[in-house]
Computed example of a mutant assay.
Amino acid sequence: MNPHTDPLSELVDWLGLRGRMDLHCLFGEDWAAPHEAIGPWRAPFHIVLRGRCELWLPESRTLVPLEEGSLVILPRGSAHVLRTAGLQGEGRAIRLRTGELLDLKTNLKRPEKADTDILCGEFEFPGRRRSVLLEALPEPMVIAFADRPGFAWLEGLVRLMAEEIAQQRAGAGAIVAQLSGTLFTLAVRAHLETKPELTGVLGLMASPRLAPGLRAMLTQPQEPWTVASLAERCHLSRATFAREFTRRVGTGPLEFLTTLRMELASRLLAQGGQGAQDTASIAEAVGYRSEAAFNRAFARHAGITPGRFRRAGAGKMEP
């Protein structure tokens, strides 16, 4: 663990995030584009470059208006529909055209006349059994960046991606894929800056009083932390620290620490190649002196032993 890494960077690194852009949508009037559920470890995203539309989540019966210059991410991959605002019925037929860089969906004979321009992609988090970061994000997470001067950096990234897609110059595919991964971290950071009442690990990040405790857990998970020693890091009494931590997260500090340790262990177990650690080394890295005790804790967390988890392969794990 790098002691100078901030909590968001550390948790994103644990996700093993892969991002990609795979669809360009150009729509005229009266359209509806349904998307099936793909979660929990795949998260679709949509960027409204031009026009406006609405997002409908049938399971939660949530309707969200989306303005031009908005990014929407569904961290848990819920089924959803993007559509013309106020549309009644199915709308005009949408055709799919295969493209060199991105496929195109449109309901127009001349897509260049479109009123609505949307880029669609997906984030993947392979080999996950749990992520405290994903669990803390709302479904959906909407970032309206066009009208916020403070989010010029996010808008700049989106415009760069759109320009690469439009120009299709050499290396555009690799550039867009790499920027798609960056987009996730920037979106979470923007969410942190716009939502003062946060829960879970985001609530800890946003709390100046509790953040030092979170940072200690992430950078030194092998240490024999107690509630008292974590409270000391935060310059709080044991009782005050435990109370505020539980109010923010919903669980006690040591229970949360165990979850973080098991999440890190999943990441280390999923790493293949010559640099892969053995189970005993991973147990020690996440604070267990006994490999047997680590095996029991991991099985309770993941429903599978560390050995079976590793043999299954990160990219083949079931949720």
Rank of each mutant, 00 (worst) to 15 (best):
R267S: 11
G272W: 05
T246K: 13
A297G: 05
P224L: 03
A276W: 03
F298N: 05
S229T: 15
F256W: 07
P221D: 02
F256P: 08
T305H: 06
A314R: 06
R243M: 15
G272Y: 01
P306D: 02
V249R: 09
R311M: 10
V227Q: 12
R248F: 10
M262G: 02
A239K: 13
R296W: 07
F256K: 08
L230C: 02
S290V: 01
G275R: 13
P224D: 04
R289Q: 13
E232T: 15
G307S: 07
A297E: 10
R238F: 11
S290R: 01
A314W: 01
R247I: 08
R238A: 12
A314D: 04
T251S: 14
A228Y: 09
A292R: 15
R233M: 09
G275K: 12
F294D: 00
S290T: 03
R311G: 06
T251R: 13
T251G: 10
T226L: 02
E255M: 01
F241Q: 00
R308H: 09
G303S: 01
R308T: 10
L230D: 00
E232R: 15
T251Q: 14
T305E: 08
M262I: 02
R248T: 15
I304W: 06
Y288F: 15
I304V: 13
L269S: 01
R310Y: 01
S266T: 09
R289T: 15
W225F: 03
R308A: 11
Q220S: 13
R238H: 14
I282G: 04
A270M: 06
A312W: 10
F294H: 02
A285G: 08
L254P: 09
R261C: 06
A292I: 11
A299Q: 13
A299K: 14
R238M: 12
A228S: 15
A283R: 01
S266L: 04
E244T: 11
A242V: 07
A302S: 09
C234A: 11
Y288E: 07
A280V: 10
R238W: 10
Q271T: 12
A265E: 03
S281H: 08
I282D: 00
I304Q: 12
L264S: 07
E244Q: 14
A276K: 00
R289C: 12
R247K: 11
A231F: 03
R243A: 14
Q220Y: 12
N295R: 14
F256Q: 07
T258D: 15
R311D: 13
H235K: 14
S237W: 06
F256L: 07
H235Q: 14
A242M: 08
